[in-house]
C-alpha cells in the first residue's frame, strides 16, 4: 500500500488546512458578527461575536419627534430593519429573483432545442452551426458589454428589466453542455418515440428533457450563481432608476454614504444578499460542485 500517513503528518495537514479555513471564513465572520452589533461595539471592536445586544437609541426615530424611550432597539433588530427600511432591499431581492429566473428560463428555452438539434438531428449546415457555438464560447459577454450597451441605448432600452436580461438570453455554454449530454442519449429511445407518433417538440419535452435533468440542474446552478452575483452588467445598464436595482447594486448604493452608524445595517444587507446562495450550496453541495466543475470538462 502507498500513503501510510503517520498521524503526525496527518495532524500537520489539519493544522495547515485549519489555518487556511480561518482566513477564508474571516470576512464571513466579520460580516455576520457586525450585522448583529451596535455602532459602538463595531467602533471599539468589542462584544464578541453577537455583541451584548444592549438596547440602543435609534437616532432617526428620535429626529422624527418621538421620545427616546420609545426609540430603543436591540442592535440586531435595528441593523436588519434598517437594511430593509433605509433602502428598498426587498425590492432589490425581488428584482434579483426575477432577473435570474428569467435569464435561466430563456437560456434553457433556447439552448435545449438547439442542443437537441445539434446532437440528434441531421440537417445541412449542422456542423457549421456547431462550430459557430464553439467560436462564441470564446467570447466572454462581459468583454463586449460596451457594444451591447450602445446597441441597447440606441433602441432606448437601458434602465429596463429587458436590458438586464437580453444580453444573457443566449448561453453558448448551455448549448454546449446540453449537446454533450444529449449525445449520450441512445438513438433507439428517440426512434421508439417517433414510432409512437410523437412529433419533435414532444420528443424534446417528454423524452429528452426528463433524462437531462442532471445536466439541466448543472446548467441552472452555473447560470443562477453567475447572474445573482453579477455586478458589472447591472452597474452598466441601470444608471438612474433605483427600482430596477439588483441586490449587488443596492448594496453598493448603501456604501455610497457610509459613516460609522451605517456599517451595521450595511453588513446586514450584505448578509441578506449572500445568504441565499450559500444556504443553497450547503444544502446541495455535491450538485453545486459538480455543476461548477462541469464547465471545466471537455
Amino acid at each position: 500500500m502507498i500513503g501510510h500517513a503517520t498521524s503526525f503528518s496527518e495532524y500537520m495537514k489539519h493544522i495547515v488546512l485549519i489555518f487556511g479555513s480561518l482566513i477564508v471564513i474571516l470576512p464571513f465572520y466579520v460580516m455576520v458578527s457586525y450585522s448583529l452589533k451596535s455602532p459602538h461595539e463595531i467602533a471599539t471592536n468589542s462584544g464578541g461575536f453577537i455583541g451584548a445586544q444592549q438596547p440602543m437609541v435609534d437616532e432617526y426615530c428620535v429626529k422624527l419627534g418621538n421620545p427616546p424611550e420609545e426609540c430603543m432597539q436591540k442592535p440586531l433588530v435595528y441593523n436588519y430593519t434598517q437594511a430593509f427600511k433605509k433602502a428598498p432591499l426587498l425590492r432589490y431581492l425581488v428584482n434579483g429573483l426575477v432577473v435570474t429566473a428569467s435569464i435561466f428560463f430563456i437560456q434553457a428555452l433556447i439552448a435545449v432545442p438547439c442542443a437537441y438539434a445539434l446532437a440528434k438531428l441531421r440537417f445541412w449546415g449542422r456542423d457549421f452551426v456547431f462550430s459557430m457555438v464553439m467560436f462564441c464560447l470564446l467570447i466572454p459577454v462581459h468583454t463586449i458589454a460596451l457594444p451591447i450597451y450602445i446597441m441597447l441605448a440606441k433602441v432606448s432600452l437601458t434602465n429596463t428589466y429587458a436590458a438586464l436580461i437580453i444580453p444573457w438570453t443566449i448561453s453558448v455554454l448551455g448549448i454546449f453542455l446540453m449537446r454533450q449530454f444529449f449525445m449520450t442519449v441512445p438513438d433507439d429511445l428517440i426512434d421508439a418515440a417517433r414510432m409512437d407518433g410523437m412529433n419533435e417538440f414532444s420528443i424534446i419535452w417528454r423524452v429528452m428533457l426528463p433524462t437531462a435533468i442532471p445536466a439541466l440542474l448543472a446548467f441552472a446552478i452555473i447560470s443562477v450563481v453567475a447572474h445573482w452575483n453579477d455586478y458589472f452588467w447591472p452597474r452598466v445598464v441601470i444608471t438612474g432608476d433605483r427600482s430596477l436595482y439588483t441586490p449587488p447594486l443596492g448594496l453598493r448604493e448603501f456604501k455610497g454614504d457610509a459613516d460609522g452608524s451605517i456599517w451595521g445595517p450595511m453588513m446586514a444587507t450584505a448578509t441578506v444578499i449572500v445568504t441565499p446562495l450559500i444556504a443553497a450550496f450547503l444544502l446541495a453541495q455535491k450538485r453545486f460542485v459538480e455543476g461548477i466543475t462541469m464547465t471545466g470538462m471537455k
Partner: peptide, 12 residues
Amino acid sequence: YFLPVMASLLAM
C-alpha cells in the same frame, strides 16, 4: 474553501 466562490464578490 468553496464558500467564497458562491458569495457575491461585490458584497465580500
